[in-house]
């Protein structure tokens, strides 16, 4: 089975968020970057597990500049076989999906993460599926494959849904798919020898740009309430916050 996992790079979760150029761009200085947790912990690890039990290959793809190679190398260290980097700024979800789709022909399964933790888009997976004219299962929490038939469980509001789909198709991975794997020394050494192919982007007119960033309104000071007086809390929730 040929599997493709889309991986993105995001600021580490505790990073301070600042902007530059008149609040039009994210200030990357001093920010540590990581592989998007949904891509790493869930999508990539499940793809590797299936490779281990069913055979085949796992390829990872990233749309981004050369500085993203560290993230691809980490995926190779965890157990992917080869990497593709589309050498372009990931400008918008549609742009990224177009680039991924251009490199996703011939794969039985394409994985995305549920969302990236920076822009929280949750858009790319469905777009890749549409470009490839394949089915898409969002927020998959469980995936089993037998021959060319897959059984997928996905989260829906207030429950879950199980469906059967023939490969090829695209899915986005959510918590539950797999457990995080830490790369070991051997994996890190092997990763250095694995292929990482850099490809040129396909042309595409972007349609969406971020025009500005702002920080949310500062929270007003927390009002401390006497633990003996919960009637006061209820009154404040009713009359001041008006949420009850």
């Amino acid at each position: 089975m040929k599997q493709l996992v889309c991986i993105s790079k995001t600021p580490e979760t505790t990073a301070k968020i600042n902007f530059k150029d008149g609040n039009t761009a994210f200030d990357e200085s001093g920010v540590q970057f990581i592989m998007n947790p949904y891509d790493e912990w869930y999508a990539l690890v499940r793809a590797i597990e299936l490779k281990e039990s069913l055979g085949g290959t796992v390829t990872v793809i990233n749309v981004g500049p050369a500085s993203n190679d560290v993230v691809i190398r980490k995926a190779l260290a965890i157990g992917a076989d080869e990497g593709i980097r589309v050498d372009a700024e990931p400008k918008s979800a549609l742009y990224v999906a177009k680039q991924i789709a251009a490199n996703a022909e011939g794969f039985d399964l394409v994985y995305c993460g549920k969302e990236t933790i920076d822009y929280n888009g949750s858009e790319v997976g469905a777009m890749v599926a549409e470009y490839l004219d394949q089915p898409f299962v969002s927020f998959a929490t469980k995936l089993e494959v037998e021959g060319n038939s897959a059984t997928v469980t996905r989260d829906i509001e207030g429950g879950s849904e199980i469906s059967k789909i023939d490969t090829p198709f695209v899915l986005s991975a959510a918590k539950g798919m797999a457990e995080q794997r830490i790369p070991n020394m051997r994996g890190i050494m092997m990763a250095k020898k694995k292929p990482l192919n850099v490809v040129e982007p396909v042309g595409f007119d972007d349609k969406v740009v971020v025009s500005s960033f702002t920080l949310p309104d500062a929270k007003t000071e927390c009002k401390m309430i006497d633990p003996e007086n919960m009637d006061e809390l209820v009154r404040l929730l009713q009359e001041e916050a008006k949420v009850l």
Binding site: P11, I17, F19, I117, D118, Y119, N120, K207, V208, V209, V210, S211, S212, F213, T214, L215, P216
Partner: peptide, 15 residues
């Protein structure tokens, strides 16, 4: 909201 609620982004859509 972006960055998990740590900032707000304004997008311009030209299409």
């Amino acid at each position: 909201n972006v960055f998990s609620g740590k900032a707000v982004a304004e997008y311009s859509i030209q299409s």
